[in-house]
Design a protein around this nucleic acid. Structure first.
Lengths: 197, 197
DNA sequence: GCATCATGTCAACCGCTATTTACATTGCCG
DNA sequence: CGGCAATGTAAATAGCGGTTGACATGATGC
């Protein structure tokens, strides 16, 4: 038996903060940053709107904290072989349950706001592009890293932001396969470059 | 000798409307839709802010008119051979002068606003995806069409929206070459599919 | 010239939303 | 218990930006 929902919840700052952060991650990943209202996040966290600001200072800082927490949960590249990485990326990208950490939705949705954009840019550069480029190796490592990100961003754009047919219907499988093989091509190129070193 | 800028310009509704539309195209292509202020457009057109609304009814309607006018200027696909199309697309995409019509910047920047997004979605579907798919031909024509658009969107995202290194520096040439060859691969696939019909 | 309509200007208005402020309630510790 | 700091709530506040309306000014036909 659940507790009476009319009754106020037992007060617990840590848990409340966590609920807000979790809600922020969901909301910032699904709506555009400027469309993501503080009240949306408060509602999703079942918390008073003023608490969101009280706990995180401002919308911008909440965004930074939320993106940071997603990046913390991202599995490190070292855990993947060349074969698995492409599929793993796409699995994160196409997971709609919200259980798999993926910075891309938040980052893409943040491009509308100058401040949130700057935050995303810095964090993505430091914590995704740089390590991925290093892991890919070679002198064109970071070129390849950004190519992979661009592929993912394009896929995401036409899946969620501008869902023109045939991305709407049952074509997801085909698009997914195309994305995997395109990523794999870039990875294979890296492998070949490394082998000829 | 130019006319005294302190003096009011000779009144001409057609010209004023054209100046507003042109300014709107520039502004909507460079800033995000929600960040693109009516006052920005008015200033760029050197026109009173109220006139923008007077002539176009609302920000949303101005956006639709502006996007429509860009699509009108787009060269039809029939004018290109398979070889030239990829390069032509990329030339439009990487032109910073604003002289070449390209709906992509406006469309991408419109994704933050639900209404502008819906407008973009409809127009892109009808006037870009559909004709491009028909031109590509084959049963997977529209899948390939969207793949090409996704590539362009990804490229644009990491060039303008989330400019992480090495897209910032001198790597543009490399990224450009990559984009052209990726597009060409999709086009070649279409050609092969058509040949084996 | 002058009447009149088209065009342009200026100053409000209005809704929206992040943030703040003042106030209530809970839980903890003596 | 009783006080007090931590936590939660509700209602302003403030600023921004699209839109509107009342008024000014230039152009055009008589």
């Amino acid at each position: 038996m659940l507790p009476d929902p009319a009754l106020p919840r037992r007060r617990d700052a840590t848990q409340t903060r966590a609920r807000i952060l979790s809600a922020a991650r969901r909301v910032f990943a699904t709506r555009d940053y400027t469309q993501a209202r503080i009240s949306d996040i408060a509602a999703a966290a079942d918390v008073n709107q003023a608490l969101v600001i009280r706990y995180f200072g401002s919308k911008e800082h909440l965004f930074e904290t939320a993106l940071d927490s997603v990046l913390d949960e991202l599995p490190s590249h070292g855990r993947y072989e060349l074969d698995g990485l492409a599929q793993s990326i796409v699995r994160h990208l196409t997971d709609d349950s919200g259980n798999m950490p993926d910075p891309l939705p938040m980052v893409i949705h943040a491009t509308s706001d100058p401040v949130a954009q700057a935050i995303s840019q810095r964090l993505m550069q430091e914590r995704v592009v740089r390590p991925l480029a290093a892991w890919l190796g070679g002198e064109d490592g970071d070129a390849r890293a950004v190519q992979m990100l661009a592929l993912c961003a394009g896929f995401f754009t036409y899946r969620h932001l501008l869902p023109v047919a045939p991305f709407l219907g049952d074509m997801h499988g085909g698009a997914r396969a195309w994305l995997i093989s395109s990523l794999q091509t870039i990875l294979d190129g890296s492998a070949r470059a490394a082998a000829t070193k």
